Simulated assay, not measured.
Amino acid sequence: MTGSALLSALAIGLGVGIVGRLVLPGPKAAPVWLTLALGVAAALLGSMTIRLFGVDVDHTFPRLLAQVGFAVPAVILGVVTAGRRGTGDATKP
């Protein structure tokens, strides 16, 4: 993976994490660091996945599309699932 792919994954991940935290409605139980980490990790995963499909990472548009495509659902799922509170005991009906 090239340096530009890593930098773009970092920038996309942080941007999606911040925007996702601001845009999603309701109380935010997920800490800020979690949304940022999810965004960056998913953007890196998007870069690796697009590379596995044989797309050269020097092509900026497919790489950015994959990074955003992975980061957005990851941040949404992270914020939504962190906001859910369980009863604490899964065996009770």
Rank of each mutant, 00 (worst) to 15 (best):
A29S: 11
F70I: 03
V16S: 05
K28L: 06
V23D: 01
A74S: 14
V55W: 00
A66C: 04
T60V: 14
Q67F: 05
G39Y: 03
V57H: 07
T87Y: 07
L44I: 14
L45F: 08
L65C: 00
L77C: 10
L64I: 09
T91Y: 10
G78W: 08
G46I: 02
I18H: 07
T87D: 09
G83W: 04
S8R: 13
V75M: 05
A5L: 01
L34E: 14
R21M: 08
H59V: 06
T2H: 10
A66N: 01
I76N: 04
P25F: 09
G13N: 03
F70K: 00
L14S: 07
R85E: 12
V80F: 13
L36Y: 04
V57Q: 11
R85T: 14
M1W: 10
R63I: 04
T81N: 14
L36P: 02
P62F: 01
H59A: 09
K92L: 15
T60F: 13
A11D: 01
I50K: 01
F53A: 11
L65V: 10
T81W: 10
W33F: 14
F53E: 07
L38M: 15
K92P: 00
L24D: 03
L65D: 02
F53Y: 13
L24I: 15
A74F: 07
V57D: 06
Q67D: 10
V32G: 01
R51I: 02
A71H: 01
T81K: 13
D58G: 06
P31K: 09
L22W: 07
G86A: 13
G20R: 00
T2I: 03
G83C: 08
V68M: 05
K28A: 06
K28S: 02
A90G: 09
L36M: 14
A11E: 03
A37R: 08
A37Q: 13
P27N: 06
I76S: 06
A41T: 15
P73F: 13
L64C: 08
T81C: 08
H59W: 11
A82M: 12
V80I: 14
I76K: 10
L77K: 11
Q67M: 15
A11R: 06
V75F: 11
A74V: 07
G39N: 03
R51K: 13
R63Q: 10
S4D: 11
I76V: 15
L6D: 05
G86R: 12
G26H: 09
S4H: 10
Q67C: 01
L65N: 05
A74K: 02
D58M: 03
L77H: 11
T35W: 11
L44N: 01
L52G: 06
M48L: 15
G15E: 05
G13I: 01
M1V: 10
V68Q: 02
R63L: 14
R63A: 10
R51G: 04
S4A: 12
I18T: 08
V16R: 01
G88V: 09
G13W: 02
P31L: 07
M1E: 11
R63F: 03
G86L: 13
L65A: 14
L22Q: 07
A41Y: 07
W33V: 13
L14F: 15
G83I: 03
V79D: 11
P62G: 03
L52V: 09
L52I: 03
P27Q: 12
